[in-house]
Nucleic acid binder design. Structure first.
Lengths: 341, 341
DNA sequence: CACAAGATTGTAAACGTTTACACTCAGGCT
DNA sequence: AGCCTGAGTGTAAACGTTTACAATCTTGTG
């Protein structure tokens, strides 16, 4: 049985195609008798509506796109989990695009936004290069966009967003190190372009300033959010003549790389160097030593951001666009101790 | 400027809509003069074709769906990377579905297969429960499906697939332990339902048999492919009265959990217990000690499987469906040593 | 019993493309 | 000049839905 359309069902059930359509979409508008007739015909033919035609007619695909830095990052996959679970209950499928992969140029993403292949977009990556692209796309066709995890750049300010208070969280992490007596505290941040990372750096600097601790410029290094990037950054830190006693990493992925590198340089963690991460990915508790880190409610962020998107899709731009701040938490494990000296 | 359709462009360029369409899709069938006229009109109006209408008309979405056990698993995300890179060069978007998440029932996946929202499917999860669903869907509408990583179950035998030789690889891993003198070798496998895991167990058993080493039934335990599952399994193994000297884990994720559990029980790796993993995820080299494991060319598998799918989509079912075996490699790091006794 | 009102169903248009087919027109041939 | 060819273009149908509107049926009421 090849393509069976609504017409065939109508013929078999001996009703009009309109009735079949109503049977499926507004069953309450149809007599029980005909409903049964039609359902029988549907079963008989194995009919299922052509989604392409539906999408076309309704102007809705029930697909949303999520743009993230990397599907490999356990933190973002945790967020994805929340997104997908919400998406499923709302009847959406999820299309994934990575920015890291360079798989799509700004133009292509822009094109995707415009050519309504998707009903809405969740941005988990700041994508500064895409900023303008998005804005122009948005004005062309008011495509619902919401932003997750990232603090929003001024140009995107009128999009709804869901995230923790990155500045406060980073401050808390740094303060924890300070409270234990650390004075020489380094930080490995992400890419220059990442706002999220910028905020965490801001928090770190604020905490240091408040404690009146100086920051050696050589202590603040870029790690591009990957293990390998962090290892390289850590090597630099280790060879620094004014070596820090603690390192704050802007995400756990980097903290894992950092941890490994410190240990393989012969130093002990936390004996010689304390390390604190960010995100609380699931590997954080099985590192050696288990990682002290800032925990984000990743899955919850995902759910909320998806529900927020749904509201945008349904209600248009009438909805509020104020940022939604979710709580973070300092999780104390064993990678941080008092400084030796 | 709201929705501008091909009609508007035609009006402005003073040609028929057919000509506009041809200008876009078959520029060579149109005079240079009209081509310029039309392109001007397109620029002027900011027109971009309605993808929904295109999809509907052409019966093609240029979207493929990949079904995997969990987006969180670094191995599968590595495969995804390959898939996405190939997909992009071929002009496809990628839709992700997880089986683990239970986000979709078999019925829903079946429905998705049938209602041609996607042009094809890549299965990275064996999904035994979906087997029949898929088959029926396949017969209803010959939807291109290819299978990656998994060995294929008999019922899916006529689908193309790309994977390593899991049996041989597991055998190699086990033989490596045996060659170092281990005699009491345990295995933590995945879910019962996972064929992939079944094959690895087969390889393990074959190697043990060949070496004439007995397998204590208590040595072969289920770990459901997650860190926590593996930790639980490891605790069982540790408390076994005939404790193994080496543990073969069916994936690295579990090996990481296993490693952590062994160490926190006070035993040393590899001093007291050797651990070998499978997949060579990126965390494998930063564990303590770095993990000896079987490496799979994950990204390559992803690319190949995607290209294979493209061929299926283009050529229909005429294409070959023989499995494509890619090479694996034993990566020796430091989690395995000679047994103490 | 007739009629109004409301519930149910049918008719047909519309969504924006692509494409088979028909048509026009220029230029080269006999 | 008439004819043929082929390139370029236009006309109109088709894809499978949804839905406004019209038509019909049912039911309750005067």
């Amino acid at each position: 049985m090849p393509d069976v359309s609504i017409k065939e069902v109508a013929r078999i059930a001996n009703v009009s195609i309109a009735t079949v359509s109503r049977c499926i979409n507004n069953p309450e508008k149809v007599t029980e008798k005909t409903r049964i007739k039609v359902q029988d015909a549907i079963r008989q033919t194995g009919y299922s509506p052509n989604r392409l035609a539906q999408s076309f007619r309704r102007g809705r695909t029930n697909i949303v796109m999520v743009v993230l830095p990397s599907v490999g990052d356990p933190f973002f996959t945790a967020v994805m989990k929340g997104i997908k679970s919400a998406a499923t209950t709302k009847g959406y499928s999820v299309l994934i695009e990575e920015t890291q992969l360079n798989t799509m140029t700004a133009d292509e993403i822009g094109a995707m936004l415009v050519s309504n292949q998707t009903d809405g977009i969740i941005l988990l990556a700041s994508m500064s290069p895409f900023g303008t692209e998005i804005l122009s796309a948005k004005s062309k066709r008011r495509l619902p966009i919401v932003i997750g995890c990232e603090t929003i750049s001024p140009e995107l300010a009128d999009f709804p967003s869901v995230h923790i208070d990155n500045i406060a969280a980073a401050k808390e992490a740094t303060n924890y190190l300070i409270s234990l007596g650390h004075k020489r505290i380094a930080m490995i941040y992400g890419q220059e372009s990442s706002l999220l990372t910028k905020d965490r750096e801001l928090g770190y600097r604020a905490a240091m300033k408040q404690a009146k601790l100086p920051i050696d410029p050589g202590w603040v290094v870029e790690g591009d959010l990957t293990i390998t990037g962090a290892r390289k950054a850590t090597r630099n830190l280790m060879s620094h003549n004014n070596r820090p006693t603690a390192i704050f990493c802007a995400n756990d992925e980097m903290a894992i790389g950092c941890l490994h590198e410190v240990k393989s340089s012969g130093l002990r963690v936390p004996g010689d160097i304390s390390i604190i991460g960010f995100d609380d990915i699931r590997y954080a508790e099985v590192t050696d030593p288990p990682l002290t880190t800032i925990s984000q409610p990743a899955e919850e962020i995902g759910e909320r951001v998806m529900y927020r998107l749904c509201r945008r899709i349904d209600a248009g731009h009438g909805t509020t666009s104020s940022p939604e701040i979710v709580p973070h938490k300092l999780v104390i494990r064993q990678s941080v101790a008092k400084p030796a000296d």
